[in-house]
Simulated scan of single mutants.
Amino acid sequence: MRAFLFPGQGSQAVGMGADLAAASPHARAVFEEVDDALGQKLARIMAEGPADDLTLTENAQPAIMANAIATLRVLEQEGGIRLAEKTDFVAGHSLGEYSALCAAQAFDLSTTARLLKLRGQAMQAAVPVGAGAMAALLGADFALAEAICADAAQGQVCQAANDNGGGQVVISGDKAAVERAMALSKERGVKRAIPLPVSAPFHCALMQPAADAMATALAAAEVRAPLVAVYANVTAAPASDPDTIRDLLVRQVTGTVRWRESVEAMWAAGVTDYVEFGAKVLGPMVKRIAPDANVMSVVTMNDIEALAAAL
């Protein structure tokens, strides 16, 4: 069995998608449709920068999605591949869940781009700059990270935001609480606690205003049953019902990205092959969680041709 995977924020880089657009009209069509949907030249920012503009959450989220979907679209159109025939599940990390749903045709491309633009804006606006923070705890399992967060909160918000597996858990919340958690981590035997250069504390209760904004937007958006089920971040379980998908995406804004559990659940369901589109971020994570998995990251035209041949 096989799963197609889609990366999250942090995988953006100036130049992303440029070679693909130069090589394939199908990739260019994706970038043009996203530009039209957003009313901006996002493809130019992706190709040329500046990096500060691309890193803005409201740009990074639709850009990462567009790059991943362009890669998939080239595979489908030039490789003659039908997603529903070649994969059993889709999954994405945080914003990548939207890319996964777009890949499985639950959302059309323009809708996905607009939702992610709004999601980025709403997440950025939810918390004043500097009031929140995130940190990566390396060498901590999820239970230890949760215990550290509980002890560090002291009436503030401090939550495990991303359970990435392989002993990496990202925490999020009020800046002072996250700093307390980092200090506690050293006492509790965590190998390293690294502050992350993020603009907002994602996937914690401070994001509730953004969750409310997404609930309104998703209620008005057309959501179709996906061609294959999506493993949802907040449940680490497959979902196919459109109303359920809406609810899960709203909960995802403030909830933990349960990536380790998602991969473990896919592996337990019989998924042995994992293909990441648009970056080389999730592949290494999967190998740390399921060392015997077959992993492939697809970024370039050569990668796409190799995948088409393998499928």
Rank of each mutant, 00 (worst) to 15 (best):
D88C: 00
S240M: 01
M285D: 02
A18C: 05
G17P: 02
L83R: 06
V281A: 11
P197G: 08
G130V: 13
A210F: 09
D174G: 15
D247V: 02
T55G: 07
G189Q: 15
L42A: 13
L42G: 14
L218W: 03
S94R: 07
L116A: 07
A236D: 02
A27L: 09
L311P: 03
E78S: 11
T254F: 03
A70Q: 04
F4P: 00
V250C: 12
A269I: 00
Q105M: 04
E78D: 08
I64A: 05
A210D: 07
V127M: 12
M296A: 15
V14Y: 05
Y231L: 00
G283N: 04
G167C: 08
G278E: 00
A113L: 05
M65Q: 06
P50K: 03
N302I: 02
Q124M: 11
V129E: 14
I45Y: 02
Q9M: 09
E261L: 06
L144Q: 15
A293W: 05
E261H: 08
R180E: 11
A176Y: 10
R288A: 03
V90W: 05
K280R: 08
N59A: 04
T55L: 11
I81D: 00
G80F: 09
A306E: 13
A21R: 00
K186H: 14
A265D: 06
K117Y: 04
G10M: 02
E305N: 13
G15R: 04
E305Y: 09
G167Q: 11
K287S: 13
V30A: 08
P128A: 13
V190D: 08
D243A: 15
A205N: 09
S262Q: 03
F4E: 01
A279S: 13
R288G: 01
G255M: 05
M214I: 07
I194S: 03
A237Y: 00
A217Q: 10
V14C: 07
S110M: 07
G132S: 12
G173Q: 07
T254S: 11
V299I: 14
G8P: 06
R28A: 15
G278W: 01
A100T: 00
Y98T: 07
Q159K: 14
A126Y: 14
V169C: 11
E76P: 06
I245G: 00
Q61Y: 03
A13F: 13
K86Y: 04
C158N: 11
A122E: 12
F6M: 03
I45N: 03
D141S: 05
M207Y: 13
I148P: 04
N162S: 12
P242D: 05
L137V: 05
A145L: 10
D243R: 09
I171T: 12
I64T: 08
F31G: 05
N162G: 11
G120W: 10
E261I: 00
D163M: 10
L54G: 13
D88M: 03
M46E: 11
R258N: 12
V34L: 12
C102G: 01
L218P: 01
K191G: 12
G92K: 07
A293T: 13
G92F: 02
L20S: 09
F31V: 10
F4A: 01
T71C: 08
T254G: 06
M266H: 00
T244N: 06
T272G: 03
Q9A: 09
T254H: 10
V295I: 15
I69M: 02
